[in-house]
Simulated scan of single mutants.
Amino acid sequence: MTDDNHNLTIRIGHDELIIRQRYQVLSIVNDVLIGVWFLIGSFMFFSDEWVFAGTCLFVIGSVEMLIRPVIRLARHVHLQRIRGPETPTTDATYDF
């Protein structure tokens, strides 16, 4: 819907907006943790004594990368439940 000032107004239900925000925050926290694990693990590779611990952090970071699509899928299922199956899903721009 547009008004006289050519501004675009999109109406999203209150529940949907809250759900989107929660999953977005969860996704951001997950991405930050991935960066932390890989950064600390990288520094640990500078010392032979810390290589095993660094490798463990790389494994943890890899597992967190697998969590990304799980977060997206959970958000999609959650939104689909509140919208109903007849509502088209064209929210690829919110794919976090």
Rank of each mutant, 00 (worst) to 15 (best):
2 T>V: 14
6 H>P: 00
6 H>C: 09
6 H>K: 05
7 N>G: 00
7 N>W: 06
9 T>N: 10
10 I>K: 05
10 I>E: 03
10 I>V: 14
12 I>R: 08
14 H>P: 14
15 D>L: 12
16 E>C: 06
17 L>M: 09
18 I>Q: 06
20 R>N: 13
20 R>M: 13
21 Q>C: 11
21 Q>A: 15
22 R>F: 12
23 Y>V: 08
28 I>R: 06
29 V>Q: 01
30 N>D: 05
32 V>I: 12
32 V>A: 11
35 G>C: 01
36 V>W: 05
37 W>G: 02
38 F>R: 10
39 L>E: 02
40 I>F: 13
42 S>I: 04
44 M>Y: 12
44 M>T: 02
46 F>K: 11
48 D>M: 03
48 D>K: 03
50 W>H: 12
52 F>E: 15
52 F>H: 07
53 A>W: 05
54 G>D: 01
59 V>T: 07
59 V>G: 10
62 S>K: 08
62 S>C: 08
62 S>L: 11
63 V>C: 11
66 L>V: 09
67 I>G: 01
69 P>M: 10
72 R>K: 12
73 L>A: 08
74 A>D: 13
75 R>N: 08
79 L>P: 07
79 L>F: 03
81 R>I: 00
83 R>A: 02
86 E>D: 14
88 P>C: 04
89 T>N: 15
91 D>P: 00
93 T>E: 00
93 T>F: 11
93 T>S: 07
94 Y>M: 10
